[in-house]
Design a protein around this nucleic acid. Structure first.
Lengths: 109, 109
DNA sequence: AATACACTTAGCAATATGGCTAACTAAATT
DNA sequence: AATTTAGTTAGCCATATTGCTAAGTGTATT
């Protein structure tokens, strides 16, 4: 997984990790707070967090014994950009197909 | 992987599969055409295609011995929607933090 | 000083993923 | 009818992923 999009999409393919992002979108939180809604063991959950950090979607600072996590929006924006790009190419093609179809209308009958 | 976004993001986390999508965005293609730029063995490549089909991002029709593949945009749009949603929540929060900061300005000194 | 809290590290097990080759089916082409 | 082409099926192997438990580290709290 060399390309940034590889790891970003990989990270977002897990529901636990998406839930963490959804939670962090509305503000920073500690590891325990993030873990609370999830049934899995803490070490398991921590590995999900680690994936998010390695991908650069989440950053964290430890103060005393509490690690506080927050979102880093750049990777998310990059992924959005890629999807938008695909959509654009694909829409342009469909539009031009419509245009061709329309230009052929004049030859009807 | 139950949620549609799980499989969508999972599918897009592989560079080969993203390349296929990029190719298909500009128009339908046969399995051989799609396979050509990739160094891997055909059966391996076919499994990538299968992942894309199972996720609903790609559909295909077989005519004679040729299978032609095309994009199904819905899953892509759904994913874009999710990302846009996250971004919106996150931006609203930052805006309101700005607002709070601004409203505190009057108490300066 | 002792205990509780908030992570953290190490290591195991099961399943998923991504690559391969070999062999097969069915549709064109010659 | 024989051969080539396009895709398919089956099965093997290595690594990655996702869950667990047990035990350890460092920081508050009592």
């Amino acid at each position: 997984m060399t390309h940034p999009l590889d790891s970003f999409f990989g990270a977002m393919s897990d529901p636990t990790r998406r839930a963490v992002i959804e939670r962090l979108a509305s503000g920073p939180a500690s590891v325990s707070e993030l873990h609370a809604p999830h049934k899995m063991a803490l070490p398991t959950f921590m590995r999900h967090l680690k994936v998010l950090e390695e991908t650069g979607i989440v950053r964290s600072i430890k103060k005393g014994r509490v690690r506080t996590c927050h979102i880093e929006p750049e990777p998310l924006i990059a992924a959005q950009g890629w999807l938008a790009w695909q959509k654009e190419i694909w829409e342009n093609r469909l539009d031009s197909m419509d245009a061709v179809a329309a230009s052929l209308e004049q030859f009807k009958d």
